[in-house]
Write a protein that binds this DNA or RNA. Structure first.
Length: 763
DNA sequence: TTAGGATTTG
């Protein structure tokens, strides 16, 4: 019996539970009965701390309340969990979870008299072949107009106002968040935690949050949310079309398709129902006398006095007005000296006061910040310097005033980094005007200076992975030479095709050199539908190398599904190592199984063996990746050939190995792009033909991973920033080879990029 | 406990 510890929803559970298992009620449990094919289901009502037995074995005890045993004399039972399973259970189990256990030993409970629970207890361990399923509770979300005083609820909301975590006058950090939702109600929440990381990671108005276990109270005639024990939050970018990636400090959370849908719906609602602030203010667009939020890079900081602290920041642009310089002792100024000098005309001084001082002191030089509600104060012109602008972050938290640290993954930070890198600092650098003492300082920090230059004035946004000894060749020379040859070049990327990056992914057969589009999901769905017509052959179930489970779906369209679990060492291995074959599954079912199990192979029955479906469908699914075979070159072999891999000592189920035994020639996912490169002497089109090396992103995963798509788009925006003049484009170091393409009509020389990769600090 | 939105006055 498999050992499984799952955090799944009830729907998934119903499709995953082996059909030979039958539910047993608590009152039928007896010490000497056979419980091999029985399972017990209940709710976790009590758990004890994880401990170790004398021999070092981990031990975890929980109390289960039987679902159908309410009102019976004994409705709860002790479950004793040993070894690794104890450790795993202690990590994921929470009170209220539905818990299913099979493969247990029933023993007389020595504590039944004292605790009043079942006369037997269950003993569970990996060694005993036990299986445990923990079914995450289905969360119910309350609309904001249906909140009741004194309840603890789960909810979604769009952030209408927020104060980033600040140091309260008590012991905790505090964050105030006002939410709205399509019920048109508003809820203000005051959230506390000793660790600001556990408060919602809200960066701007319009972000969407999901709160679990927030306590609702009435305050001044209005509902108010406050943190309860077990409060947890997820935060999402509220922009329509942005990747749905939760920001959270929680290690365990459930986030499924349904939640995905909710976020998308809320984004659409928010887009037309709340006013989301326009483009962020840059230093170049600062308006005197107003308040603004600034996304910036922390270059320096210094203590000023007890109630104020200085931050020196830069956002890649230059403020058009004279700005103040807050005088500080040189010894109090933290930051890279050379950088501070380099940026002296670009960065601005922001003086922060009172409650913000403690947080400001703790900031790390080099981090990316969003400073909310900075006051651009117009200083009077009565001193000798004339008028200038002062930047203050006043005390208090009115209007969300405060400081937030942004992670490097934040899209605004990525944009800022790209901007910082594109700025040419040569103009603001004036070595000649420095005193010799200043120059000494400068060169004592030479290494810092170098690393800084590398970061912001990247000599090349690509690097060669080989052939570094070669000298550059001008494009003009290359175009006037015969092919085939290899060259090192230094050029700029003027444009590239396709602009829609997902169109660059193709399937390539290395045997016949053919290229084809990646089939879309619909086609796969149709093939599955068609193959579901073939009735499963009962003689092909439960063979020497796989166990089969068959069931028929309820409802109008009855459908028979068979899953064949491939065995290893006479056992079906753990879920994450299991290869399964499925007959009669739908697209959705196949996808779900592929996410959970190691490999899924869609098959249908013939008279004497299972066989693969049409090769227009993927022959294998692993996680998010669908593997296809070349129709031209493959000669499918009987499925039973897979048993040779299953018999290996440690089957790794590599797609290439599976393809080989099944007679499939595996198609490779590749990026194919056309780069137009220029270097002042000429322009040529070079093809990029890459599976992973150039972007350091696997082509096989890009179509199903929005994070990777975003990463690739960011990379291209750095290689070829949109809307820039040629002079402002970065340089690319590339290795290219020329080759001849001839047909009856014409002869052409083509170029291909190879042994080149995007520089590490670009990706 | 803290804060409970609705700009400092340096």
């Amino acid at each position: 019996m498999p050992v499984q510890l799952l955090k799944i929803t009830k729907e998934q559970f119903e499709t995953l539970l082996p059909s030979h298992l039958q539910k047993e009620d608590l009152h039928h449990l007896q010490e000497d009965c056979d419980h091999t094919n029985k399972y017990i289901q209940g709710i976790v009502v009590l758990s004890y701390p994880l401990t170790k037995l004398r021999d070092g074995t981990d031990f975890f005890k929980i109390v289960l309340q039987g679902l159908d045993d309410w009102g019976s004399r004994v409705d709860s039972i002790n479950i004793l969990i040993y070894g690794k399973m104890a450790e795993d259970c202690a990590k994921v189990l929470r009170h209220g979870d539905t818990f299913i256990v099979a493969g247990f030993k029933v023993m007389k409970s020595p504590t039944a008299r004292e605790d009043g629970r079942h006369g037997c207890h269950l003993e569970v361990s990996e060694e005993a072949g036990s299986a445990i399923y923990s079914v995450a509770p289905k969360y119910v979300y309350t609309p904001l107009n249906q909140l009741k005083d004194g309840t603890t609820v789960n909810l979604y909301g769009v952030v209408k106002f927020f104060k980033p975590p600040y140091v309260s006058k008590g012991t905790d950090y505090c964050s105030v968040v006002t939410l709205v939702d399509p019920s048109n109600a508003k809820l203000m929440c005051t959230l506390f935690n000793g660790n600001p990381d556990f408060l919602p990671k809200i960066y701007k108005v319009g972000d969407i949050v999901r709160f679990h276990r927030i306590k609702i109270r009435e305050y001044n005639g209005q509902m108010q949310g406050v943190t309860s024990a077990g409060f947890a939050s997820l935060t999402f970018d509220g922009t329509v079309g942005a990747p749905v990636v939760p920001r959270t400090s929680s290690k365990m959370y459930t986030f499924m398709d349904e939640e995905h849908k909710t976020i998308k719906e809320l984004r659409v609602w928010a887009a037309s129902n709340i006013s989301i602030p326009g483009p962020a203010t840059k230093l170049s667009g600062v308006q005197p006398m107003l308040f603004f939020d600034l996304t910036c890079h922390l270059v320096g900081k210094a203590k000023v006095d007890g109630s104020s602290f200085l931050l020196k920041v830069w956002d890649g642009t230059k403020c058009p007005y004279p700005t103040w310089r807050v005088p500080v002792e040189a010894k109090d100024l933290e930051g890279q000296k050379v950088l501070l000098r380099q940026l002296r005309d670009l960065m601005v001084d922001i003086l922060v006061y009172d409650n913000h001082v403690q947080l400001a002191k703790s900031l790390k030089i080099g981090s990316f910040l969003r400073i909310y509600s900075i006051h651009a104060k117009q200083a009077s012109a009565d001193n000798e310097d004339g008028s200038h602008i002062e930047f203050h972050l006043h005390g208090g938290t009115c209007y969300g005033r405060g400081i937030g640290v942004l992670p490097e993954s934040n899209p605004d930070v990525k944009e800022l980094k790209a901007l910082l890198e594109s700025v040419d600092l040569a103009d603001s650098q004036n070595m000649e005007s420095m005193s010799s003492e200043e120059l000494d300082d400068t060169f004592s920090d030479f290494t810092d200076f170098e690393s800084y230059l590398q970061r912001y004035r990247q000599l090349s946004v690509t690097v060669l992975t080989d052939h570094q000894y070669l000298n550059d060749t001008e494009l003009r020379t290359i175009m006037n030479s015969t092919a085939p040859q290899q060259y090192r070049i230094r050029a700029k990327l003027r444009t590239y095709k396709p602009q829609k990056l997902h169109q660059s992914v193709k399937l390539y057969c290395s045997k016949c050199n053919s290229l084809q589009e990646v089939p879309d999901g619909d086609e796969f769905g149709f093939i599955l539908q068609r193959s579901a017509v073939t009735a499963p052959n009962p003689e092909l179930q439960d063979t020497s190398w796989y166990d089969s489970v068959m069931w028929t779906t309820q409802g109008q369209k009855q459908r028979t599904i068979v899953i064949h679990f491939v065995r290893h060492d006479e056992m079906v291995p753990q879920v994450e190592n299991t290869l399964l074959m499925i007959e009669g599954g739908t697209l959705k079912e196949v996808w779900k199984l592929a996410k959970r199990f190691k490999c899924v192979i869609p098959v249908r029955s013939t008279e004497d063996d299972l066989e693969l479906l049409d090769l227009s469908a993927p022959f294998l699914l692993q996680g998010n990746v669908k593997y296809y075979g070349c129709k031209q070159c493959s000669a499918p072999k009987p499925i039973r050939n897979l048993s040779s891999i299953a018999a290996e000592q440690h089957p790794s189920w590599e797609p290439a190995e599976i393809a080989q035994v099944l007679g499939i020639v595996l198609l490779q996912y590749v990026f194919i792009m056309k780069f137009t490169l220029v270097d002042g002497t000429g322009a040529l089109n070079a093809y990029l033909f890459d599976d992973e090396k150039f972007f350091q992103i696997p082509a096989s995963e890009i179509l199903t991973n929005s994070f990777l798509q975003e990463k690739m788009q960011m990379t291209m925006n750095i290689l070829c920033p949109p809307g820039r003049k040629l002079a402002d484009l970065p340089w690319l170091e590339c290795f290219i080879k020329s080759y001849n393409v001839r047909d009856a009509m014409k002869h052409q020389v083509c170029y291909q990029i190879f042994d080149t990769t995007v520089a590490e600090d670009v990706v």
